[in-house]
Design a binder for these strands. Structure first.
Lengths: 210, 210
DNA sequence: GTCTATAGGGGGATAGAC
DNA sequence: GTCTATCCCCCTATAGAC
């Protein structure tokens, strides 16, 4: 077996290898800056095969984009819909799961949000995200806590925004943050690991602020 | 004077009109998806003039990118370096100024952070951002508050990340947030206006959390 | 300074051999 | 299914007239 300079994707069907390569390149560069030739090279296949399997760059992109959004939202939807766990436990789960996930896939958030900015309508219409989150146990539990006076801010969207902000934003701003501090990538990731435990504490304090 | 279909940029020098148009298009689409023809059309000039004034797409982009980052950081650096204002006042100022700024320029954060991801080194090296922020009154005041036991989290980077997260992230995630809620743009902006007053309260509570 | 016309190259997609 | 060769459009950049 020939050695390649970099670790490439092997040991699956050709179609899967192209998709895996497309995921890597699209996530890193975005749609416009990605060349189908980059994907072919990353997959270790010929350019013509890409069109043979997926017809066009755009169709391949739509598949990757859909799977990316779905994979990102699925986890959140599952956690937010757990009937048995408390609100506090859900905050812990989101912080823990997403910090681990984004550490492994640091390009996913900004990729998703950049591409959504141009095509939110087309890309989101297939996903029943709205119902899954707005009618979740998370939102119901939030309302109950507000009614009992345990949470001051009555709008659950602020609550969800705050949680996601604290978890996701540092990764998106990573280049800038490393620019103004002197952290290398390892030190930055350590900082993010710390946040797994800090964010639930902070969120609890915010909930009761007035 | 001929009427144009859309409001275009007029009443300045040609060079300024091209820059203003480039700012609009680059901010909206990013470097790769922007065509020089789009910029020329937005500026109401001929494509050749763009190269006459700026030599190349990349050179024009570098100018816009530099000015964008500088404009964004300058305000922050000023606020963080004020010797007279308290830490709490600085938090209020950042929240207030940036929510207004980003409401007017909603594409700037994701544009900046997307493009920085690929070229952080080249694009940040000209800016003395590091010293301006890491040695600021803000960081010194934070350390003093920690010493006095008024703030529990000793790392000022967490503090700055949290503040920026709460302010900036909701704008970046706007398409997704509008997708899962049913807010139109006006309602979304009202939500952001609410945050001007809420964020300082939340941050104060977080500071004392343990 | 501003335009028209065009060179030159890159990138998506396909034809056709194997 | 997979490859090589190639088409052809689009985009950046420039030449040259005015």
């Amino acid at each position: 077996m020939a050695k390649s300079k970099e670790a490439k994707i092997v040991d699956t069907t050709t179609e899967e290898r192209i998709k895996a390569a497309a995921r890597v390149v699209f996530h890193k560069k975005g749609y416009a800056a990605t060349r189908t030739r980059d994907i072919a090279e990353e997959a270790g296949i010929n350019l013509a095969l890409l069109n043979y399997y997926f017809r066009s760059k755009e169709k391949l992109f739509d598949i990757i984009m859909f799977e990316t959004i779905f994979g990102f939202m699925q986890n959140m939807a599952m956690v937010l819909n757990e009937e048995k766990s408390t609100l506090e436990k859900k905050v812990e789960m989101i912080a823990f799961n997403y910090i681990d996930f984004i550490t492994k896939e640091p390009n996913v958030p900004i990729f998703m949000l950049s591409e959504l900015r141009n095509n939110a309508g087309r890309l989101l219409e297939k996903l029943p995200v709205k119902q899954l989150i707005m009618t979740s146990a998370f939102f119901r539990q939030h309302q109950e806590a507000v009614a009992k006076g345990k949470i001051t801010e009555p709008n659950p969207l602020h609550f969800l925004m705050n949680l996601l902000s604290l978890v996701v934003f540092p990764f998106i701003a990573q280049p800038l943050l490393q620019g103004i501090s002197n952290l290398n990538e390892t030190q930055f990731n350590q900082l993010m690991q710390e946040r797994k435990k800090l964010i639930p504490v902070w969120v609890k304090a915010m909930m009761k602020a007035k």
